[in-house]
């Protein structure tokens, strides 16, 4: 099954739409709560990053009986030093974003922690692409 969602930069209200839709679907497939939670946390953090740091993004989700693959591609400033961005607590979030309760610098580390396979690539000045793959077998 294939699904896709758009998110806008700065749109914190709709960040979370894709992850809650995906959660509803995984629940109907009788997937364990622990696995669902991993997928949902990873996807939610990725959505928030597009809203907080980029200008527009597209999410594609593909679900088979064994695996869920999520691709998040955005247009935005990109990340110059990925290794640095992956560190726990590192954040360039603006004051406004922090005041909304985001920007603790734990997003990317949590995405990696909650995915079985995690890939990130970025072109500064153009955008960022994440790939999150989780096996669905219990």
């Amino acid at each position: 099954m294939e699904l896709s969602y758009d998110i806008g930069g700065g749109d914190f209200v709709n960040a979370g739409r894709a992850s809650s839709a995906v959660k509803g679907i995984l629940k109907q497939l009788n997937i364990s709560a622990v696995l669902i939670k991993r997928v949902v946390i990873a996807l939610y953090e990725a959505e928030v990053n597009v809203a907080a740091h980029a200008s527009a993004g597209k999410i594609s989700v593909s679900i088979t009986k064994d695996v869920i693959r999520i691709n998040i591609r955005d247009k935005g400033p990109g990340i110059a030093d990925i290794e640095l961005a992956m560190q726990e607590g590192y954040s360039t979030a603006s004051k406004e974003v922090r005041e909304m309760g985001f920007g603790a610098g734990m997003g990317l580390p949590n995405i990696r922690k909650n995915s079985d396979t995690f890939n990130i690539s970025s072109t500064p000045g153009e955008g960022t692409e994440l790939e999150i793959i989780n096996r669905l077998s219990n």
Binding site: M1, G24, I25, K27, Q28, L29, N30, I31, I63, T64, K65, L136
Partner: peptide, 21 residues
């Protein structure tokens, strides 16, 4: 007492889910 599950067989559940969409 989960009620959301479409089918205990994952493949069948996925087929049903596609049909719903």
């Amino acid at each position: 007492r989960p009620m959301m599950v479409l089918d205990n067989d994952r493949e069948e559940a996925l087929r049903k889910l596609n049909k719903i969409e």
